[in-house]
């Protein structure tokens, strides 16, 4: 059986998969929208509890990682494989930084007794309870996607080293990059909705 290399088809497939991710998060964004509409004051109050510094730093980290990813693709298209490999590793490193930050942030919140089903959370007004529950769900689901995205890119890096992703056939890396940008995209919305709603 001869091998199909349908570059355009692979990209269409990847975009379709990204849509499923958008709509998966979409269900949570829908809940967020409804509850923001219902509890504007409580969301305002609870949003102030989150560390804006952490949020902003992580935004910068993710956007910069997206830049590295885009540069990695451009480098590979120009045939500069080694540079591309390094840029992919930098992207993954920034994913790690993001997760470490997230860990400290969650850790601090949990240390204050604010996590789903905790007595501390249940003592809050209903609107703030909803805010924090959504916060954990949405950033948690996003965090899982950061982990998966990082793993996919690491695998792409491996494929480059063994010569299966090349300047001629790099659709795996490009699709991995698309996934990574989507992770960034979701965070671009999560950041203002949780850290900046005032």
């Amino acid at each position: 059986m001869h091998e199909h290399r349908d570059y355009e088809g692979a990209k269409i497939g990847m975009w379709l998969f990204l849509f499923t991710e958008v709509l998966l998060f979409g269900g949570l964004f829908l809940l967020y929208a409804v509850f923001l509409h219902r509890y504007p004051a409580e969301f305002h109050a609870a949003g102030k509890e989150l560390s804006r510094t952490f949020g902003t730093v992580n935004t910068v980290v993710l956007i910069t990682s997206s830049l590295f990813m885009a540069l990695a693709i451009s480098a590979l298209q120009r045939g500069r494989t080694v540079l591309s490999q390094r840029l992919v590793l930098l992207t993954v490193a920034l994913a790690g930084v993001f997760l470490v930050n997230k860990f400290f942030e969650w850790n601090a919140k949990i240390g204050h007794g604010i996590y789903p089903d905790s007595p501390g959370l249940l003592a809050l007004p209903p609107g703030e309870m909803v805010f924090f529950n959504l916060y954990y769900l949405m950033t948690g689901l996003h965090g899982i996607h950061v982990v998966i995205g990082g793993a996919v890119l690491l695998y792409g890096w491996h494929l480059m080293r063994v010569g299966r992703v090349t300047p001629e056939h790099f659709v795996f890396l490009e699709n991995g990059g698309l996934y990574w940008h989507l992770v960034d995209l979701v965070w671009i919305y999560l950041f203002p909705l949780f850290y900046l709603v005032v």
């Binding site: 199909h4 290399r5 349908d6 570059y7 355009e8 956007i63 910069t64 997206s66 830049l67 885009a70 540069l71 693709i73 451009s74 298209q77 120009r78 300047p167 001629e168 056939h169 790099f170 659709v171």
Partner: peptide, 20 residues
């Protein structure tokens, strides 16, 4: 039916930096 990658547009580094 087989599109080739090299025919694809490579985004200039400068553009990427500007977007960033």
């Amino acid at each position: 039916m087989t599109g080739h990658n090299t025919a694809h547009h490579a985004v200039p580094v400068r553009t990427n930096l500007l977007v960033w």
